[in-house]
């Protein structure tokens, strides 16, 4: 039996303006809207594809930070078998070393032979979660994966790892293993809000608690927003004006025929 676990993390939605805490060393999280880390959604999709192919059991697990329940219900609506929310003493924004240790603790009591994570997230200041987790669990790891095949016996995986320039390396590794997913083999499925609502009524999220000491190895001195558009000359006016200005710039440089 193939037991797939997908750890999921939420990150601030970049469509909204990021807010910085008055301390200047953290994001202001009160008004932040969270979304699932885009690449975790790819990891989930890859898990669901493998479930369809191998009758695998898929569990999603997430630390109780942000508003993670919504994401867990979405995963349930998409067809995962189990969703687990982990509470503990890790504060509102645990770093990835801490998160990985919490997950290790929970995975100890959870059958697993394949762990799929998104290969990175936009807030990975202290490293990527998947590889950290693989090291705490002493499991083999391959990241930047965009294709996964499991052999008949469920004992090994053959994966495609992306190298620069569109080249891929085909690698084989024994299970259990951790993979950092770069892209699922097909675009993540969409699930309508009505199905998520239905999951909220009919499915349940399991709750577990876990312990983790803090890390504190790296200290954030300051968070700021970059000075945007520092280099660019901005073109103003109506769409026609902008179009004319661009044509002018291209003509000056001899780019237009």
């Amino acid at each position: 039996m193939l037991d797939i676990v997908v750890p999921i993390k939420q990150v601030p939605d970049l469509v909204e303006e990021l807010e910085i805490d008055p301390s200047g060393t953290a994001l202001g999280l009160e008004r932040t809207r969270f979304v699932v880390n885009e690449l975790d959604d790819h990891a989930l999709e890859q898990a669901l594809l493998l479930k369809e192919k191998h009758q695998a059991q898929v569990s999603v697990i997430a630390l109780d930070v942000g508003d993670v329940e919504e994401t867990l219900f979405m995963a349930l609506a998409k067809g995962v078998d189990q969703a687990i929310k982990i509470s503990g003493d890790f504060g509102p924004a645990p770093d990835n070393h801490t998160t990985a240790r919490v997950l290790k603790d929970v995975l100890g009591g959870l059958s697993h032979n394949l762990i799929l994570t998104g290969v990175q997230a936009i807030d990975d200041l202290d490293g990527q979660l998947g590889i950290l987790l693989s090291s705490y669990l002493d499991l083999p790891y391959v990241g930047l994966v965009s294709g996964v095949q499991i052999d008949e016996g469920g004992s090994k995986a053959t994966v495609l790892k992306e190298l620069p320039g569109g080249v891929k390396a085909e690698l084989e590794l024994p299970l259990p293993a951790v993979l950092g997913i770069q892209a699922a083999e097909q675009p993540p499925r969409y699930v309508p809000v009505s199905r998520v609502r239905q999951a909220m009524r009919t499915a349940t999220i399991e709750e577990r608690s876990a312990a983790a000491e803090g890390n504190g190895h790296i200290r954030v001195r300051r968070i700021s927003k970059p000075q945007v558009g520092a280099g660019a000359e901005l073109l103003e006016g109506s769409s026609e004006d902008i179009a004319e200005q661009i044509v002018g710039i291209l003509a000056d440089r001899g780019i237009l025929r």
């Binding site: 601030p12 970049l14 990021l18 200041l125 790296i218 300051r222 700021s224 927003k225 970059p226």
Partner: peptide, 13 residues
């Protein structure tokens, strides 16, 4: 450069 280039974080070891 974090958050897809939308925040600059100065961190220290």
């Amino acid at each position: 450069e974090l958050y897809g280039g939308r925040a600059v974080v100065e961190a220290e070891i």
